[in-house]
Design a protein around this nucleic acid. Structure first.
Lengths: 230, 230
DNA sequence: TTTTATATTTTGAGTAATCAAAGTATTATT
DNA sequence: AATAATACTTTGATTACTCAAAATATAAAA
């Protein structure tokens, strides 16, 4: 069994290397994600590599093996199911759920996890819209585009928010920019690098392109449709 | 903040020293309860004593200070609320809940604990009938007598079971000897050291005096009433 | 009382994880 | 190409916990 420290390294590594094909995660980056010094990360990664969960290339970086990815996905499953459980069943604040789950994910048993999964009705996404890996370690990740890619007049539905910080989540919640919310793009201003989005039944919200890119939406088709009309 | 190791030492110490006035818990006993060697316990206890949570008397034993008791009661509160939560909300087996709670009690936050407490309606006892300390660290422990003290013909209600092992709990459950169950004492045989108890709507169960003593009952008055009639 | 048994403490060593700081590559700048 | 900046690795030390085995004290038996 992997220690909770190693589980954390694997999880961060997975999140960082996902969507990159064969690219190595640099040590400094991993160290920052885990919250340790670079020296500590180097030592730890060498141990992880020795146990076959990652490949380590000195001065280049580290990348999970298939076995490492599988283990990481099991941690991620625990994390995301717990987040949903904390929000849905216990009524914990959306913005706090992440930090709470961070602790619990390492001690919850398979039995308890199975009951939580059952109680939630085998959900496919967590409160942020992040997909929950199956118990077999499979992840269904539909391709989504972001608010930043849409055009004036487009209407869409928020599917996922890719920032776990409680400050950002509190802002998103108070603006009405939450998963499943319908949103209309009121203005886009590429020069200023900002857009204005109006959630259904709420006030319009100004978003920088960086912020807008954190909201993934569905359907994407609206973008293409709009472009054709131009 | 106390580490989870120290939390465990404090909890076991509390359970062991309760109901004894000023008596010191021997090292060997504590070591066995925590599951470490006697040498380890000695080292650890000295550290705990240095931080003011216990008094340590070499070759005599150890005893919690008031501060240590308070901390232990907070751990116990987390443990017992979690046990009830696991059984009531998640549907975890009675006999497994103890082991699960043992892990969770050290990582659950005050926020999550408060939500669990609320969801359960501020309960006063856990699934075994053990009282749950208040958030202020107060414990209400009504005096109960055991099945072993009753006499033939007495009727009573099981209030508490003082054995956390899953084997014993499975036996109790299958016999119908669970908290809140009404029980009639059918036979007592002091010579053989055994009694026969019949839970309402179930078959009578043979119990050794040792086993019978693990079932605490209410009301106790039945005993006195019976004695007077003799 | 002397011996034996039992409980406890001490000692020395090991594991897992960490950091600070010194040393070494690699990349970028002049 | 030489220098400076950056990223990474190594080293030595530290903390928290643990065990096995040797040393010591206390209690029980002879």
């Amino acid at each position: 069994m992997a220690s909770r420290t190693i589980e954390n390294y694997l999880k961060q590594l997975w999140l960082e290397q996902q969507d990159t094909r064969g690219k190595y995660v640099p040590m400094g980056k991993l160290a920052a994600l885990v919250g340790v010094t670079a020296g500590t990360a180097t030592t730890m990664v060498k141990a992880i590599a020795d146990s076959g969960l990652a490949k380590y290339a000195p001065r280049a970086g580290v990348r999970l093996t298939r076995a490492g990815e599988q283990l990481a996905l099991h941690v991620l499953r625990r994390h995301r199911l717990l987040e949903l459980f904390l929000v849905e069943i216990l009524g914990i604040d959306w913005s706090d759920a992440h930090a709470e789950a961070e602790e619990l994910e390492h001690v919850i048993s398979e039995t308890v996890l199975a009951r939580i999964d059952l109680l939630l009705g085998h959900p496919s996404v967590d409160p942020h819209g992040d997909p929950i890996p199956s118990s077999a370690g499979k992840l269904e990740a539909p391709k989504l585009c972001s608010l930043a890619e849409l055009h004036t007049g487009n209407t869409t539905i928020i599917a996922r928010i890719v920032d776990q910080s409680s400050e950002f989540l509190r802002f998103a919640q108070s603006s009405g920019l939450v998963p499943k919310a319908q949103v209309v793009i009121e203005h886009t201003n590429p020069q200023a690098g900002a857009i204005s989005a109006r959630p259904d039944g709420k006030e319009p919200v100004m978003l920088s392109m960086v912020a807008a890119a954190k909201f993934l939406v569905r359907p994407c088709a609206a973008t293409r449709g709009k472009r054709r009309n131009k």
